[in-house]
Simulated scan of single mutants.
Amino acid sequence: MVTPLINTKKYVNVREINGIDFYYEHYQNRNATKTLFFIHGFLSSSFSFRYVIPELMDSYEIVSVDFPPFGNSGKTLDFTYSYKNITVSLLKLIHVLNLKNVSIIGHSMGGQIGLHMLYQSPETFEKAVLLAGSAYLKQVRKSLIALSYLPFSGMFVKRWLIKSGGVEGNLAKVVYNKSIITDEMVKGYLEPFIKYDNIFRALAKFIRDREDDLLQPILKKIKTPILLVWGDSDKIVPIVVGKRLKNDLPDSELVILPKTGHLIPEERPERTVELIKKFIQ
């Protein structure tokens, strides 16, 4: 059941930050004292939080952002798609919007970026909830980086995505209960790839620009309270990653959801909302 909009107004915006357009949805709540900053995962967008945000927007101010080159954000080849540069840009957006008492809600790669934000600007955030947050990844092989410079690299990325099963096939890999995959769901995840054909060239550059994840010594310096939420059947970022993060992040706790895959906001929206409210408050 979707909570009615009582104190909240939704604004859809595009703002240029560091030379690229950032699309974000801003749910302004005149009675809220805390802000939730949502960051989606790889090949995704703010669409993935469509069941979670409606249940939270009457209690918090919310900003949900599409980080480039995904969703409705920019896909220029002039932007550096590194964790560091995306992080700097998102921090600037938070500053421009004058957000206060901010907590990060990051899913998958959004969790990776969230950890970078906590490390670079710990004073900006109160807490963080990482939903199957990726971590410990190394930069891609040099051969793939070399391929990303080819004129037709975008075509290779497109063919790779199709060969991997397309949107529907990839959704089947990231959920435990495949019956939740509907035509509406497939359409929502597919739309940016139909609407913006230049996303494939940008993805090739994204692969080239992405650096190594944060190392253990850096993770141990992050003192922000963090809730780690994992599905016990996650095949994309296995539970072993969550347990490792629990050991490496000084102020963290881990909740494991049974019969749940990687796409936690889609599979367990009610439980996700419950955990966020309890942890943030």
Rank of each mutant, 00 (worst) to 15 (best):
A128W: 01
T87D: 05
H40Q: 04
L97P: 09
G74N: 07
I39Q: 12
G188P: 10
A128I: 05
L245M: 14
G106Y: 08
M109H: 09
K100M: 08
D58Y: 06
S153K: 02
P151W: 06
K220I: 01
I94Q: 03
I104R: 03
R50C: 04
D78H: 10
L254W: 05
E274S: 09
K187T: 15
W160L: 15
I194K: 13
E123W: 01
S164T: 04
E168H: 14
I236K: 07
V255M: 10
F70G: 01
E55S: 15
V14Y: 10
T272F: 09
G169H: 07
L249N: 08
Y27H: 14
S143Q: 13
H107G: 02
F79R: 07
V63L: 13
L99H: 12
Q216M: 08
G242V: 11
R15W: 04
V14C: 05
V140G: 02
P122G: 09
E191L: 10
L214C: 08
L144A: 12
V174Q: 09
Y81Q: 05
G169Y: 02
R210G: 00
F70C: 05
T76G: 14
E126F: 06
Q120I: 05
V140T: 15
G154W: 03
T224Q: 03
N13L: 08
N247C: 04
F193P: 02
M1H: 10
L56Y: 03
K235R: 13
F156P: 00
V255Q: 14
I280P: 08
L227A: 10
V102P: 06
K187Y: 09
D58A: 04
S153Q: 05
V240T: 15
Q112H: 10
R268W: 00
R210Q: 13
V157Q: 08
S143V: 14
S103P: 03
K246T: 01
L36V: 10
I145M: 14
F193C: 00
P269W: 07
G74W: 06
A135E: 06
L214D: 07
T80C: 13
N31K: 15
H26R: 14
P68C: 03
V174Y: 00
K223A: 15
L93S: 05
I226P: 01
H107T: 02
K10W: 06
V88K: 12
I236V: 15
S121W: 09
S73T: 05
I180D: 06
Q28T: 12
I181H: 07
S48H: 03
T76A: 13
F37E: 07
V273D: 10
S46R: 12
D234M: 03
I180Y: 13
I207H: 06
S44L: 05
V52D: 03
V237D: 11
D21Q: 13
G41F: 09
E61Y: 09
P54C: 11
I17Q: 00
S46W: 11
L214W: 10
F37I: 01
G261N: 12
L43K: 01
V12F: 04
E274V: 00
K34G: 04
